[in-house]
Design a protein around this nucleic acid. Structure first.
Lengths: 140, 140
DNA sequence: CTAACCCTTAAAGTTCACTTTAAGGCAAGT
DNA sequence: ACTTGCCTTAAAGTGAACTTTAAGGGTTAG
C-alpha cells in the first residue's frame, strides 16, 4: 500500500504519516528498491493507534516514550507501569472535565427555556459540579 | 479582588485572564479610577467556565461564539441548539477516544505479563474496540 | 519525449493558545 | 526619595503539532 492509500484509509495526511515516522511514533516503514514506503496492516494499526491517542490529547513526547517502552525487547514493566499510571490519571481527569462540559451543554439544551440569564446558568452548573470534586492550582 | 488573587483562586495565570478578556471569552471587567481590574464572583465563575471548556478541548473561536450566544439579549435558541449539539457530539466523541485510550492503558497494566509483543496487544485492543464501536443511536 | 501524478527529503511556514517582555504607573514600607 | 511589588498595555516570543514548499526522482499514458 502507498502512503496515499494509507492516508485515505486512516484519515491521517501523508505528510503527517511521514512526520510520525520521523518522530518515532510509528515504526520505520519498509521501502522498495527506490525508497518508496510500502505500508502494511501492521503500520496501519500503528497509525490508527497514534491517531486515537492524539485525539485523546496525549502529547507527542509522552506518546513517543510510551511507544518506545511498548516496543522494547527488554523487560521494563516497572517503568511502563509508572508512565502508564501517570498518563491514565491525566486522561481520567481530562475525561471528567469533558464529562462536566458535556453535562453543562446537555443541561443547557434541556433547561434553556427556564433560565433567565447566563449567570443563573453558571451558578446552577457550579452547584452540580461541586457535588463531585474540587479543582485548584496556582499560577500568576 | 485583584487579578492576582483571581489567578490564585482559579489557577489561571493573570496574563491568561487578561488574554481571555481581550478575546471576549469573559465579560469586560470593571476597573477602578486608575484602570485596575476589580474582579468579582461573576467574573470568577466565568473564568472557571472557560477553564473547564478549554480543559475539555474546546477551541477559542467556538468558545467565543458560544459565549456570545450565551450572553445575547435576544432569543437565539435555535442557533444555540445548533452550536451546542455540534459541540456536544465532538466532545462525546473525544470522551470515547479518551475512554478507548484509558481502556488500552488499563488493559496493558493488567495483562502485560501475558503479552508477547506490541502487535499482539494492538490486535487485542482493536478487537475490544470494535465490539463496542457499533454506534447505537440514542438521540432525542 | 513529455506530461501527469505519484513518490522522496529537508527546511521553512502556519496556527493555536498562550507567555514573556518592554515600558510605564500607583501605593505602601523604610 | 527609593525600593518593592503590584498594576496597566501593546507587542514580540514560544512550543507543539503539524503543513507547506522546494527540489528532485520513478512510472505510466499519450
Amino acid at each position: 500500500m502507498t502512503i496515499k492509500e494509507a492516508s485515505e484509509l486512516t484519515g491521517v495526511p501523508s505528510a503527517t504519516i511521514r512526520y510520525y515516522e520521523k518522530e518515532g511514533l510509528i515504526p520505520a516503514i519498509d521501502r522498495n528498491e527506490v525508497g518508496v514506503r510500502q505500508i502494511d496492516d501492521r503500520i496501519i494499526r500503528r497509525i490508527n493507534f497514534v491517531k486515537t491517542m492524539r485525539a485523546a490529547g496525549m502529547g507527542i513526547d509522552i506518546l513517543r516514550r510510551y511507544i518506545q517502552l511498548f516496543d522494547a525487547k527488554e523487560d521494563n514493566e516497572v517503568q511502563q507501569r509508572e508512565l502508564l499510571q501517570e498518563q491514565l490519571a491525566i486522561m481520567e481527569e481530562k475525561r471528567d472535565d469533558l464529562q462536566f462540559a458535556i453535562d453543562h451543554l446537555t443541561f443547557k439544551l434541556e433547561n434553556r427555556a427556564h433560565m433567565e440569564n447566563a449567570e443563573a446558568e453558571l451558578r446552577q452548573l457550579e452547584k452540580q459540579h461541586e457535588e463531585k470534586g474540587e479543582r485548584g492550582g496556582d499560577e500568576n
